[in-house]
Write a protein that binds this DNA or RNA. Structure first.
Lengths: 187, 187
DNA sequence: CCTCCACTACACTGATCTGTGAAGCCCGAC
DNA sequence: GTCGGGCTTCACAGATCAGTGTAGTGGAGG
């Protein structure tokens, strides 16, 4: 899994360009040129654009999960742990996620269900829902899976609304709503 | 605003193809061929692909607003009116919106802020939030604009989660959460 | 009859797309 | 000193991209 220096640069450049401009809008020639690498190297390392796209999503997924897990682990109070992903979202956006959720955006562009990136997208959402469910169960919520789905909906909506509606207050609003739902479920 | 027969067909075909496969993935040649029209006609009627994309979004926006307004007007109870867009979402999805929110998807592909479609997308989200705010105020909610933003987040999240996470229960979960938030705000 | 217009036919531009083939260079490891 | 691998160079394939120019057809309305 260790990438060669060239492959590392390609993946880094591709990640920025895919996220910022969309997948179809960025050609492999651009990625290669911007990485200071020939197109030959790109294909020798990744095999195809589709595979590179999947690797882009995998790499972003890894970073995102680490970010969320760190935010959860930093809390000890069960309720605060369950709501930590909403706090994590605020840092994440502040660090440059102004174009919304990369996975939602990729889903919009990858219409073929068998595209290698689709599985990564699907897994990312399932993972977050499962994390919510685990933490909610730990917080003594009765229907943890059901509430987890509601928190996932709020979470997705927060990032999307923040970007698409250009509404910075969406993140805080989602976090507040999530807290109210959790409190109601524990009462 | 009345379209010629050819233009009508082009717009109908483009709407399906753009929504189902994405904007960049569908070429004008395909749209023209599928409409049983020459590319010349397409350009004579719409001027450019960007303009056609904007018209696609405008047309979908119109249908969507009419659908939501009908759902709201069908209710008399103030709370049910405010929550009507969530019910409307279920019909909408059942009628074939399996690829998520067309506006969110388009946002993912249109990276240029000056693209003519971007204004349509932005307006659609602002409109729905304003509708929520109006109905919530009518239902006697104190901070109607604030709660309207939360309902918008739930609404966006519902459609996205339904499609991206392949989770049909997301719609109902969002509606339930919305009702709980509204009830809490009226207590 | 004549004019307008929606539309066809079709050839073409120039750019860009993903992906490949063949040759060779440099450097570290064995 | 030889071998492998990370990488370059560059030419090229074949398709598809958005968009245009020119000429002509057929029908509806004045």
């Amino acid at each position: 899994m260790t990438l060669t220096p060239g492959a590392r640069r390609i993946l880094d450049v591709a990640s920025v360009l895919f996220y910022e401009h969309g997948i179809h809008a960025v050609g492999v020639d651009t990625i290669a040129a911007e990485s200071g690498v020939t197109k030959r190297t790109l294909y020798d390392r990744f095999g195809s654009k589709d595979a590179l796209v999947a690797d882009y999503l995998r790499a972003r997924d890894e970073r995102w999960r680490a970010h969320v897990v760190a935010a959860v682990e930093a809390e000890s109070d069960p309720v605060r742990r369950a709501l930590a992903p909403f706090a994590a979202l605020e840092d994440w956006v502040a660090e440059g996620a102004g174009r919304g959720c990369a996975f939602v955006n990729a889903f919009a562009e990858l219409d073929r269900p068998d595209h290698p990136g689709r599985a990564v997208i699907h897994d990312e959402k399932r993972w977050l829902r499962a994390l919510f469910a685990t933490e909610l169960a730990g917080a003594g919520v009765a229907d943890a899976p059901g509430l987890a789905l509601q928190l996932l909906v709020l979470h997705e909506g927060a990032l999307v609304t923040h970007a698409v509606a250009a509404e910075p207050a969406a993140l805080r609003a989602a976090g507040d709503a999530a807290r109210l739902l959790v409190d109601a479920a524990r009462a």
